Simulated scan of single mutants.
Amino acid sequence: MTFLFIFIVTFFIMECITWLTHKYLMHGLMWYFHADHHQPKYANVFERNDVFFVIFAIPSILLFYFGAEAGFDYKFFIGLGIFAYGLSYFLVHDVLIHQRFKLFKNTKNKYLIGLRKAHKVHHKHLGKEDGECFGMLFVPFKYYKI
């Protein structure tokens, strides 16, 4: 039961970490990598922004490894929480919102529509300043109104 709690808490903490990383690093010091994500799309399958998947995967992989070496202790379940959040992020951000894979185009789900609206507001700013809606799974309730 303790490991389930660690997994769930890690998952939700990742939303806070993602918000902070997005606002202060991606729209700050690491704008070079994130900038192409805010520009009109080209035929390229990958963006420089995809480097953030690798950056977030490294701690997860290390925690999996060292947690498994220690008999599947708490480190493993922290790594699992980071992985689950990363998978959710990929499915919501890249599949649902940006349609990198053409799925869920015609959803009627208020929550998913709200996520799309909030992200669209975030992307109306092409530069790194004046950004808003930096979260991924939790966005202001005003975007859920249809």
Rank of each mutant, 00 (worst) to 15 (best):
Met1Gln: 10
Phe3Gly: 00
Phe3Leu: 00
Phe3Ile: 01
Leu4His: 00
Ile8Thr: 02
Thr10Ile: 02
Thr10Met: 00
Phe11Pro: 11
Phe12Thr: 05
Ile17Met: 13
Ile17Gly: 15
Thr18Lys: 08
Trp19Ile: 15
Trp19Tyr: 14
His22Cys: 11
Lys23Leu: 12
Lys23Asn: 14
Lys23Phe: 09
Leu25Trp: 03
Met26Tyr: 06
Met26Glu: 03
His27Ala: 07
Gly28Cys: 01
Gly28Leu: 03
Leu29Val: 10
Met30Asp: 06
Trp31Asn: 15
Tyr32His: 14
Phe33Asp: 10
Phe33Thr: 09
His37Phe: 03
Ala43Pro: 01
Asn44Pro: 01
Val45Met: 14
Val45Pro: 14
Glu47Cys: 00
Arg48Ile: 04
Arg48Cys: 11
Arg48Met: 08
Asp50Lys: 07
Phe53Ala: 11
Ile55Cys: 05
Phe56Asp: 06
Phe56Thr: 08
Phe56Pro: 00
Ala57His: 08
Ile58Trp: 02
Ile58Phe: 03
Pro59Gln: 09
Ile61Glu: 01
Phe64Ile: 13
Tyr65His: 12
Tyr65Gly: 14
Tyr65Ala: 07
Tyr65Cys: 06
Tyr65Val: 15
Phe66Cys: 13
Gly71Lys: 04
Gly71Pro: 04
Phe72Lys: 05
Tyr74Lys: 02
Phe76Gly: 15
Phe76Ser: 07
Phe77Asn: 03
Gly81Trp: 00
Gly86Ile: 01
Val92Asn: 12
His93Val: 01
Asp94Ser: 03
Asp94Cys: 04
Leu96His: 09
Ile97Tyr: 05
Arg100Val: 00
Phe101Met: 11
Lys102Phe: 05
Phe104Cys: 14
Phe104Ser: 12
Lys105Leu: 05
Thr107Ala: 05
Thr107Gly: 04
Lys108Thr: 12
Asn109Tyr: 08
Lys110Tyr: 12
Tyr111Val: 13
Lys117His: 13
Ala118Trp: 08
His122Pro: 09
His122Phe: 12
His123Ser: 03
Lys124Asp: 08
Leu126Ile: 14
Lys128Phe: 13
Lys128Thr: 11
Glu129Asp: 14
Asp130Pro: 07
Gly131Asn: 04
Glu132Ser: 01
Glu132Gln: 07
Cys133Met: 10
Phe134Val: 12
Gly135Phe: 04
Gly135His: 06
Gly135Gln: 03
Met136Cys: 15
Met136Asn: 15
Phe138Lys: 07
Pro140Leu: 13
Pro140Asn: 12
Phe141Glu: 05
Phe141Lys: 10
Lys142Arg: 08
Tyr143Lys: 03
Lys145Met: 04
Ile146Phe: 14
